[in-house]
Simulated scan of single mutants.
Amino acid sequence: MSLPFNARRVAVVAPHPDDEILGCGGTMARAAAAGAEVHVVVVTRGQPPLFDEELVRRIRSETLQAHGTIGVADTCFLDFPAAGLDQVRRSELNAALSDALSRIAPDLLLIPFIGDIHLDHQIVFNAALVHARPRGPGGPSCVLAYETLSETNWLAPGVTPAFIPNMFVDISETIERKIAAFQAFRSQVKPSPDERSIEAIRALATLRGATVYRQAAEAFVLVRQID
């Protein structure tokens, strides 16, 4: 499937800063290198007292640095409360995300997976699909759900939706850029064997790549494709 790199405008929806790099940083980098405009919409922002304001400012700076490494054209922050989307009126979230995505007008939309353990991820998945409904000629022609280390695999497959990838993107040439981008999140990088370690990111990319006989890959669930 070559659509991700024929796409001219790519939108990545991240519930929280760094989800997009963990989930599809290599794909983002490859799309940007192919000449696509890559946009990121970060839905939430940590808010006191749950999150320290200084840490939140630091993560915002790290996010922009990581996106610069990837080649992101623009980053939009919606600033809904992190770990609190279940307290937000769904219509308000849907409208804000849809407005942001309408301005981008992507032909490729990358979103978190519905089966992620974090409720914010589940809510963002549904909100993104509200926008992506094929009700006119201007919607995204391809919607992919990405996997996020420490979120996608921590629920209960068999009881909850399991991440069973049916789309793989070769990131053999961009895995190092993905890792460099995640390293920009100095506040989030953990030592091995934590899933948010550099070793874990590389191991997952190696495993997904071996599945399709590539050196490194990212895996997705194809939600919808319109040819």
Rank of each mutant, 00 (worst) to 15 (best):
T69H: 11
R90E: 10
D107E: 12
R45L: 13
G35T: 05
Q183I: 03
A82F: 02
L101T: 01
A105S: 14
R224V: 03
G46D: 09
V43G: 07
L119M: 13
H67A: 06
N126I: 06
A14T: 09
A11Q: 06
V42G: 00
V56W: 07
V221Q: 10
A66M: 04
Q122R: 15
L155M: 08
A217G: 03
P157R: 06
E173Y: 05
T148N: 08
D227T: 08
H16K: 13
Q225T: 02
G115N: 06
G71S: 06
E218I: 09
I201D: 07
A156E: 14
E151F: 13
V72Y: 02
A66S: 10
G209K: 02
R133Q: 14
S61P: 07
W154R: 14
L78E: 01
G84Q: 07
R214K: 12
E199T: 12
R133F: 13
T160C: 08
A29N: 08
E92R: 12
R45I: 09
P193K: 04
I175P: 00
D170C: 02
V130R: 13
G158Y: 09
I175V: 15
I123Q: 04
R9A: 02
I70C: 02
R208P: 07
F185V: 04
D79R: 09
R103M: 07
L144D: 11
L93Y: 05
P17E: 10
H67T: 05
V13E: 00
R8K: 11
D99P: 01
R45V: 07
G35P: 07
P140C: 01
A200L: 07
P106K: 04
N126G: 10
V212K: 14
D116M: 05
L85I: 06
E37M: 07
E37S: 12
S150K: 02
A34F: 06
R133A: 15
R224C: 01
V43N: 06
E92I: 14
V212I: 15
A217W: 04
D52T: 08
R8P: 00
S91Q: 09
S98V: 01
H39M: 07
T174L: 07
R9Q: 01
D227G: 14
V42M: 03
A96D: 06
R89T: 09
S172K: 03
D79Y: 08
G35M: 03
P134V: 02
K190A: 13
R45W: 11
A11V: 00
G26M: 05
F220Y: 08
E195Y: 09
P193T: 09
A83M: 15
S187Q: 12
A132P: 04
E53C: 03
P137Y: 08
L110P: 00
V72C: 05
A32T: 03
H121N: 04
Q65A: 15
A7W: 01
